[in-house]
Design a protein around this nucleic acid. Structure first.
Length: 497
RNA sequence: GACCCGUUCGUCUAGUGGUUAGGACACCGCCCUUUCACGGCGGCAACACGGGUUCGAGUCCCGUACGGGUCGCCA
């Protein structure tokens, strides 16, 4: 049987990085096994689902490169079928009508409320105490016909247990007494999540369900539905969760944009780097290779490599340099440094365009200069943003001077105020404006002034690029060219800041 | 609270009864160099705790602690 998996986000917000990883694992599993990767939008909650969210999620998936093999399925389109399934179970006596009036659940802390209620009842709670569970069929029919609203609940047997073999967590068992008679159909006729998922997975021919560990207990409920429906259940694989630093829950409320996938795209991550990083969170190839491109990931991916323990995403919200996990940042830098320039340039082009720094010439007559500049400055960059921020001076005259750079490299050497313009004069006279022409001139200049080359070059770096760090300075001078170099070295702007 | 899941360096992880417990990121030091967030070399640093089983336990069993998940006419 060919493998068919699906990624099933609910469009109630942006794409969470945990969901992105779930999508990744589904995608890798499908590609590795030669199966199909499908996407199903779980929009059965009409009140909370938004088109905006759907668009943003699909956009995120596209950025990561996970295009579905078949048309995207919208769960709400099949609501009629889900309802039919519930009604069939009702007719077969596997479900019953519950005439209990709907509880008002509009309160803020629903989760807390439910947990508190469960705590009160403790282990004494009888999951089979619904007064309508054994209502005679005739009475139930009559009340329904009279127009009394009812929800449809699955009639879970009193004794027995569900069990399944999870590909990650092993054998899972749950006693029926722990499972309530779950609601299949709301009193307004609206099908609910567990029913919809099962029906759709059957309809889509899903063979392997790979999803977050938060669904582990739902799985037992879904198995009951599969069994009632007389359908074969798929294989299950539950993924460990991604936690915040300290092992706490990673949530939008407490951690903000850090959990949104789009943040990574917008802050200069390469999709390839982020995919690579995400793959290593909760999964291991069991080799010492960590830099794995998509093709390699597909080749070596297997469910056996998935961990059972949750992984903490490590970052420090108060430190701009560590706005996200160190290793993710390092990996992105690694991709920026090693990607073939041809592949990097389109990404840099987008970045520069976004900041109004792009010039069409870079694709034409200045292509060579542009390429060598990228080649030169990418060495110490961490994100694509660095090309328009730290690297700005290579593409524009309008760049800022880093305060610390001024302090450290100019402030401590007041002589530079005279020296750098003097250096400009010296450089202006050079015929051969290349490394071999520039470097000896700089050395000679420093010898004349009786200072270290580093002092002068560092000072020059500030005036030329506004930065305290960067590529080899002589190479940078060559790259900028004589005109800009001379002009910037003579400028007093930085000194007056 | 009940049920379920988990616990190896600060973080991500390798490890399936005998290892000097390996790698990566971060951190620190040294080297290279014309400076730096490049590069090279090196260092610091972990089996949650307590009992078993065993000649021998990070690896198996039982408890404890801690953390996480779930418990809805949400998904």
């Amino acid at each position: 049987m060919t493998i068919r998996v699906r990624f099933a986000p609910s469009p109630t917000g942006y794409l969470h990085i945990g969901s992105a990883r779930t999508a990744l694992f589904n995608y890798l599993f499908a590609r590795h096994t030669g199966g199909s990767f499908l996407i199903r939008v779980e929009d059965t909650d009409l009140e909370r689902s938004t088109e905006e969210s759907t668009r943003s999620i699909l956009e995120g998936l596209k950025w990561l490169g996970f295009e579905p093999d078949e048309e995207i399925v919208f769960q709400s389109d099949s609501a009629d079928k889900h309802r039919e399934a519930a009604l069939r179970l009702l007719a077969e006596g596997k479900a019953y009508r519950d005439f209990t009036p709907k509880e008002d659940r509009t309160g803020k802390d629903i989760k807390q409320e439910i947990a508190d209620k469960a705590r009160e009842k403790g282990a004494e709670k009888d999951m089979r105490d619904n007064p309508y569970r054994d209502l005679p069929k005739e009475e139930s029919d009559n009340r329904a016909e009279a127009g009394e609203p009812f929800a449809v609940r699955l009639k879970v047997a009193k004794d027995g247990k569900t069990s399944f073999e999870d590909a990650v967590y092993g054998l899972q068992e749950r006693d029926y007494s722990e499972i309530e008679d779950l609601v299949l159909l709301r009193s307004d006729g609206h099908p609910l999540y567990n029913l919809a998922v099962v029906c759709d997975d059957i309809a889509m021919g899903i063979t392997d369900v790979i999803r977050g560990q938060d669904h582990l207990t739902n799985t037992h409920k879904q198995i009951l539905i599969y069994e009632s429906l007389g359908e074969e259940k798929p294989n299950f694989a539950h993924l460990p969760l991604i936690l915040a630093p300290g092992g706490k829950k990673l949530s939008k409320r407490h951690h903000g944009e850090i959990v949104a996938l789009t943040t990574y795209r917008d802050r200069g991550f390469l999709a390839a780097a982020f995919r690579n990083y995400l793959a290593l969170l909760g999964w291991s190839p069991k080799t010492e290779d960590e830099l794995l491109g998509l093709d390699e990931l597909i080749k070596v991916f297997s469910l056996e490599g998935i961990n059972r323990s949750n992984a903490a995403f490590n970052f420090d919200a108060n430190n701009p340099k560590r706005w996200t996990d160190d290793k993710a940042l390092w990996m992105n830098a690694e991709y920026i440094r090693t990607l073939p320039v041809d592949e990097l340039i389109p990404l840099v082009r987008e970045e520069l365009r976004g900041e109004q720094l792009w010039r069409e010439e870079y694709d034409g007559e200045e292509r060579e200069w542009f390429e060598s500049t990228i080649e030169l400055i990418r060495e110490r960059f961490y994100t694509l943003k660095d090309f328009s921020e730290q690297g700005r001076a290579f593409f524009s005259e309008d760049f800022d001077f880093d305060k610390k750079a001024i302090e450290k490299n100019l402030g401590k050497h007041p002589d530079l105020r005279e020296w750098l313009p003097a250096l400009a004069d010296k450089l202006e006279a050079i015929e051969d404006f290349t490394h071999d022409g520039i470097f000896p001139a700089v050395k000679e200049f420093c010898a004349e002034k009786g200072t270290k080359v580093g002092v002068v070059l560092n000072g020059a770096r500030v005036l030329l690029t506004g930065q305290a760090v960067g590529p080899s300075m002589v190479a940078a001078i060559e790259q900028l060219g004589k005109e800009k170099t001379v002009m910037r070295l003579r400028s007093q702007v930085a000194w007056n800041e």
